[in-house]
């Protein structure tokens, strides 16, 4: 309450109801956004602040003021013994390669399906290519473990039966690649469906104009279709980027971060610090750095590419 309001209410000596009304009217915009601010505080600010608090104390206690403040010691542990840097590198590798694969494959599939003449066949493909997205992460991981198993897996069997190459031991020799491929299988449908919708929004006459202008197929895509779809491509990539940083279930179910720490994503590292090593301070420290890291990347992407409206 401002001093101005106080002086006004005292000088005019109004009733309590009138004072309340005046309070309401004076701060009207603030009352309207108050519920949202409250929710934001509860679901975003409070967990964030609590995480920050956990990262600078020795061990959480019931009495928050009794906890021992240890400065940046948890951060030092996280990036020393905790292998946080390694996890960051693994995560970035997985995110970048999976995002690239999913975008390219998703776009390719979308372009192919959009080019199918028959309506019925087109909707069949649409449904077919969306199915992988509907598989739950843990189920996918379990299916993956069975199918990729060197002894009983159908995929190593098929490779050995149909090609002259020996099947690699997916989960022990090339675990990182396996994780990337499994995520690609799982999430390419997401890119597919968004790109497919984007492709459908490109006006036919625009493509016809570029055909008349003499552009070969790949140049039509490069100069006309993809630039037209830029907003769609951007939004899809951003959503998938943020989502990839949160990957946990599939990888944990498939490899539990192993062998060793070969597939230990940041999310898995945080989980293990918290629930296996019982070091909430270290887990919180990694989480704080990770949060800053992801928010920074998302903001850089938005600033660099920018949200642009759909073309008129």
């Amino acid at each position: 309450m401002s001093t101005q309001t106080q002086t006004e209410t005292t000088t005019t000596s109004e009733t309590g109801v009138a004072r309340l009304r005046e309070l309401w009217n004076d701060y009207l915009p603030y009352w309207f956004i108050a519920p949202m601010v409250l929710v934001m505080l509860l679901i975003t600010f409070f967990p964030g602040a609590y995480d920050l608090y956990l990262s600078v104390i020795e061990e959480p206690t019931f009495d928050v003021f009794a906890a021992e403040f240890v400065g940046l010691q948890n951060y030092a542990t996280a990036f020393g013994r905790g292998g946080a840097l390694h996890s960051f590198i693994i995560t970035v590798t997985v995110v970048v390669s999976a995002l690239a694969l999913e975008s390219v494959l998703g776009f390719g599939l979308a372009a192919l399906v959009a080019g199918v003449e028959s309506e019925r066949l087109q909707s069949f493909y649409r449904v077919l290519f969306i199915i992988p997205m509907a598989v739950a992460p843990v189920s996918l991981a379990t299916i993956g473990r069975i199918m990729l198993n060197s002894e009983i897996g159908v995929i190593p069997y098929l490779i050995e039966a149909t090609t002259p190459f020996a099947a690699p031991a997916f989960l022990s020799e090339i675990p990182l690649l396996t994780v990337v491929l499994l995520d690609t299988w799982n999430w390419t449908p997401f890119m597919f469906i968004i790109f497919y919708a984007g492709l459908s929004s490109v006006p036919d006459t625009l493509i016809e104009a570029s055909r008349v202008d003499g552009a070969p197929l790949w140049r039509r895509y490069l100069h006309v279709v993809i630039p037209y779809m830029k907003p769609v491509v951007f939004v899809a990539t951003l959503i998938r980027l943020i989502d990839l940083f949160r990957t946990f279930g599939v990888v944990y179910g498939l490899t539990q971060g192993g062998p060793g720490t070969a597939t230990q994503l940041v999310s898995i590292n945080i989980y293990e610090q918290m629930f296996i090593n019982n070091s909430p301070g270290v887990a919180a420290a990694i989480a704080v750095v990770y949060l800053v890291f992801v928010v920074a990347i998302a903001n850089i992407v938005i600033a660099k590419v920018g949200f642009e409206g759909v073309w008129d």
Binding site: E208, A209, R211, H223
Partner: peptide, 17 residues
């Protein structure tokens, strides 16, 4: 491409980008 024609469309079909 091979017909050496130019076309004007009803909605102009200018490349927006």
């Amino acid at each position: 491409r091979a017909r050496d024609i130019a076309m004007v469309f009803q909605n102009y079909a200018l490349y927006p980008n």
